[in-house]
């Protein structure tokens, strides 16, 4: 058995590996190379060393979007997980139409970010028009607009993961807790939550990286307006690359720094929340 698996390993792995190399690894390496270059189109790059990286931190918009994104990520991560968990708890109780509700909550996730952003910009601008404001009036409006959008989009997805987790908890654990006289709250606190650790790991990981990498919703909802103040990191990289002639390399350098940040944050998160997982 073991041998057979080894023999067929290349056949099963190769297609994915090739796709992964072409789609991710090669662009990734080219991307790192380009961050050390000056270029107009990526086919005529000239190596210039580290000066792109020096420019990154002289660029106020990058520093601004860095903390703006951090704040955004923290807020959406906490809110999405909390709300998704609450909804999941509610929809695993025996209530009428819970399957219908699950489907409805999950649906926003099936719509692309650009479309969502456009719909929400119409909705929110329509509401803000009562006060003669628009989403792009200042960066705070855009910030909360994006938070609302992302919550609406992602709660359903995380909810599904939590529901799966909750349904996986063996009935006898809850039953034993009940017999021992645990209250509803104690059941939740000492049985359900610890048993959901691995779901929490996955969900926090996904919301964390999604928040950091969010691009299309940002583009469609505020497009960084006003004055590039509502730009998240990914969008800042994009506008640097495409919006400023001569700054393509700087945009690429930002992308490399972005990669390091997202990688470091995600690994740390993974390490921290894995430690507390319960093995079944």
């Amino acid at each position: 058995m073991e041998k057979a698996i080894k023999r067929y390993l290349p056949i099963f792995v190769l297609p994915t590996l090739i796709a992964f190399t072409v789609g991710f690894i090669a662009p990734f390496i080219v991307g790192i190379y380009l961050s050390f270059c000056k270029f107009t189109t990526i086919t005529d790059a000239k190596v210039i060393g580290f000066s792109n990286y020096a420019k990154v931190f002289q660029d106020d918009t990058f520093v601004h979007s860095l903390w703006y994104t951090t704040l955004f990520t923290i807020i959406t991560m906490v809110l999405i997980n909390f709300l998704a968990f609450v909804v999941a708890l509610a929809l695993t109780k025996k209530i009428r139409g819970s399957y219908l509700f699950r489907t409805i909550f999950f649906m926003p996730n099936l719509i692309g970010g650009i479309v969502l952003g456009y719909i929400w910009s119409l909705l929110l601008n329509g509401i803000l028009a009562y006060w003669s404001k628009t989403l792009t009036y200042n960066a705070t409006y855009g910030f909360w607009g994006m938070v609302i959008l992302l919550l609406w989009q992602q709660i359903g997805y995380m909810m599904i993961i939590y529901i799966a987790g909750i349904q996986n908890i063996p009935g006898e654990l809850i039953e034993a807790a009940k017999i021992d006289g645990a209250t509803k709250w104690q059941q939740l606190r000492y049985v359900t939550l610890p048993m959901l650790r691995s779901s929490i790991t996955v969900c926090t990981f996904l919301t964390l990286t999604n928040g950091f990498k969010m691009f299309d919703q940002n583009l469609a909802l505020t497009n960084g307006e006003p004055s590039e103040k509502s730009e998240l990191l990914a969008m800042n990289i994009y506008t640097t690359f495409y919006g400023r002639p001569g700054w393509e390399g700087v945009g690429q350098a930002k992308a490399v720094i972005f990669f390091l940040i997202v990688g470091a944050v995600a690994l740390t998160q993974n390490y921290l929340s894995r430690r507390k997982e319960v093995q079944q």
């Binding site: 991710f24 690894i25 991307g31 995600a266 993974n270």
Partner: peptide, 20 residues
């Protein structure tokens, strides 16, 4: 999990490279 983390992070960067 490590692999997944790495893959996600690489996607973040490749996304930018691929666009160009």
């Amino acid at each position: 999990a490590l692999g997944m983390t790495a893959a996600m992070a690489v996607t973040a960067l490749a996304g930018c490279g691929a666009a160009s």
